[in-house]
Every structure is written in C-alpha cells, then in structure tokens.
Design a protein around this nucleic acid. Structure first.
Lengths: 155, 155
DNA sequence: TGATTCTATGCCAAAGGTTAACAATACACA
DNA sequence: TGTGTATTGTTAACCTTTGGCATAGAATCA
C-alpha cells in the first residue's frame, strides 16, 4: 500500500501532531511485518538499522501514539513484554473480531477471526445490564506443527 | 469450609512440600475473599495483620506455588499489577468457564460463567489443527451502576 | 527563504513490580 | 531430640517502561 504513508501523515496533521521521520519509520517497521507481534525492543532494533540515532523512549512514545490512533493493537502475553502488531486495513476485520491462538510449545501466535462473542455480549447486556464495548480473547494450546513433532518424537 | 485447610495441607504433603504458617495464611487470605481480585501487595497487607513478620518475597513465592497447584487464578488487567483470586471449589464452575467483565468507569470486576467457547474450540481444532487447552476472556465495558449514574448526572 | 514557535527527540535517570541471593529459620522424619 | 533440607526474611538487583530536560527540528508566517 504505497499511499498508507500519506494517510498516516494526514492523520498526524489532522490531530495537530508533527510528521517526523521517526514516527514514519516506526509505523513502517510494523506495516512491513503484518501478523508479527513485536516488543518495543524489537521495534527499536528494526528501526535502528535505518535510523541509528533513534532513542528507545521515542519508540515507546510513538507506540503509545499509534495505539491511541488505533493504528496498532496491543497484545500482552504475561511474559514481561507487551507486543504490538499493525492493525488490519480492512474494516471488516476490525480488532473486535481479531483473536489470538498462542502455542504453549513453540510460542507462535496465530490470528483468527470470529464474531462468536456478539451473541454473548447482547445476552450479557440483557441479563446483567453490562454494556460491553471491547473484548480480548486469548486461546492457549498446541499448534498443528508441535502436535506432529511430538508424535514423531514419541515413536 | 473448615476442611479446606486440611485439604490444602494434604495437597502440600502429597507434592513433597512443607506446610508452613505463611502458606496457610496466604491461602486463607484469598479463601476469605471469594470473587475479589487481590494484588500481591494487597495480599501482603492482609496477611501482615496476623503475621507481621512475613516478607513480600514469600507472598510472591506462595502465589506462584498456589497458581501451579491450580488453587488460584491469575488476572492481568494491564494496569501494572497482576491480580489473584481463589479458584472455585465447585468443579462445574472451573476456570475454563470463568470469565471477567471489567467496568471501564469504576474498575469493578464481575465474573460470569459461560461455555460458549467450547463450540469455537472444537471448530478451531477441526479447521486449523490447533488444540486449545485453556483460554482467557476479558470483556470491557460499563456496568449497570455506572450507566445509571451517568444518566443521572447528565440530567 | 528566514525567523519564530512549540512540539518531538535523545539522553539519562528514576520508577515500580517482581525476582534472585544468601544466611537464618523451622518443618519433617527418624 | 537431633539432623537434613526446604522455606523464609532481608536486601539488592533486574528489567521494562516512564519522566525530566536541554536540544533539534517541523510548521507557520512574514
């Protein structure tokens, strides 16, 4: 998407924020890796290749900014690092239907789409009066590859 | 449940672990507060009333132990604190069906039971070959009380 | 283009929850 | 009661993340 960068610049200007090389570089680092879940440190290392003078604090500040602009999604796996991934550009696949499968063996993260909770949320609204506006679903288990590897090993 | 403590002692002995006053006090602190979600610091403060010499490190170590014994459940709300709650003694209400509603206004946490994901998990197994063994569902929104308070305020 | 303004950056130090190290304690078992 | 070993309390360290501050640089206007 060559015009993604222009859209980002417009979005910054529209919010009274300045367009800087650092901000563009950090967004690009994530845009170039759709489906990957990078820590702040990993983003820092990637961006440093093209921009050796960037500071880690700038990465953290920009991550927060991108998160507030809903351009990236946060993922916390309770391993001491918060991870970030580029949001889908397709509004149909918004993050409300975007969930994660986490393999307990290899640590890989798989995404899947499902609107199963829609039904549950309206039921919660009716029975408890609680109005759900967002949710986070993490499924832990074992991926196909690791299941196969185990079967091979045990032979 | 007066025999809960005895069950705990047996469980410790069965695992080759020692029965200590600190471990019992920490489990009791959580058992006395079902449905509450306490941070390590909060558990520390509670236990210190009866056991002033206890150290914070012991609380952390015991929390980890109780978690491994599946006696308590972990809850991370991404606010910088990990919280813990006593697990249900009813096997029907196991943590696999135990989910959380978090009010974005007052911060209260409400629990609800649902087995909605069972269906999804078998579908994932069939289509992706991923074997789900555990899951974590957090629903964010606004509780009944806060919705009412808002309506009152805006009048 | 050049001056001005104010945001953004880089560097550094601090914050803050959690864990590690280690000597002292106390549980378990004979 | 004595011995061996796990557990505890204290303290310091860890490590990700955030705050402070002087400087650099983007936006705006002349």
């Amino acid at each position: 998407m060559p015009n993604n960068q222009e859209q980002f610049k417009d979005l910054l200007r529209k919010n009274g924020l300045k367009v800087t090389n650092q901000r563009i570089a950090i967004l690009e680092a994530l845009s170039d890796r759709p489906g990957e879940h990078l820590t702040a440190e990993e983003i820092y290392d990637v961006v440093k290749k093209d921009y050796p003078d960037i500071g880690l604090a700038t990465v953290y500040r920009t991550i927060q900014l991108l998160s507030e602009l809903n351009l990236i999604d946060k993922l916390n796996l309770d391993d001491g690092y918060v991870r970030y991934e580029i949001g889908s550009e397709n509004p149909e696949e918004n993050c409300h239907h975007h969930h994660h499968l986490i393999c307990l063996d290899c640590g890989n993260i798989y995404a899947f789409q499902d609107d199963l909770l829609e039904n549950l949320e309206s039921r919660i609204k009716e029975t408890l009066g609680f109005d759900v506006v967002n949710h986070e679903v993490k499924l832990y288990g074992y991926c196909k590859e690791c299941i196969n590897n185990r079967a091979v090993k045990s032979n």
